[in-house]
Amino acid sequence: MLEVKNLVAGYGTIPVLRDVSLTAKAGEILLIGGENGAGKSTLMRAIAGFNKPDSGEILLDGKAIGGVAPEKVAQSGLRLVLDGHRVFPELSVFDNLRMGAAARRGDRAGFNNAVEEIYSVFPILKEKQKLYARDLSGGQQQMLALGQAFIAQPKVLLCDEPSMGLAQALLPPILAFLRRWAQTGTAVVIVEQHLAVTAPYADRAMIIERGQVKFSCLASELDEKLNAPAVAAE
């Protein structure tokens, strides 16, 4: 579904990613971990079209999308949820969800169903649907940002640090939602630092270090791999 081959990218003159490859398959969650500054966000932004790759290929359903403008990428079915629970603060909760429909063509009924589904998963959003998004808590804003992406029904969902700025306890319901979402046939990529919490929800995992893929494995083997003696430093 999403295939990244030998990606080299950065921002401005700063190279961040060196030769990164990955695949995300429909119905699966790929978890990407790594330290701060390892290049995870840059990877997400490069795939979504915000940073132009210096070299390498990004294929969505076999179609090259490297260097395509982010709004076009979104319209062709790949949706990035930016880190830091970014919503439109001066728009109401419902209007924020409406904006999700920009990357989805037509069908009013589908939109209504999707909104109802979001409201049933996150009832708090329904409760606050008339409030400005700026009045939500960080966790609620993250739900809203995901809800907006859900409305678009993308083929591939990239989710950059859904835990950023949230209390840890809020993460499991969000991850559970992503799990169910993936099972409907969406390819989901989650970038997270809280690996222990996230790994049980993921199928496969990949660790990035200093802009390069350190290793990838099944999510269930992640813990074991991380604690392997191969990485004893001092």
């Binding site: 690996l195 660790i207 991380l226 001092e234």
Partner: peptide
């Protein structure tokens, strides 16, 4: 600092202890 439990969770895939 490396042994301080308060900072253990910062290390992903590498250890300094």
């Amino acid at each position: 600092v490396a042994k301080d439990p308060a900072v253990q969770h910062m290390f992903v895939g590498s250890r300094h202890a």
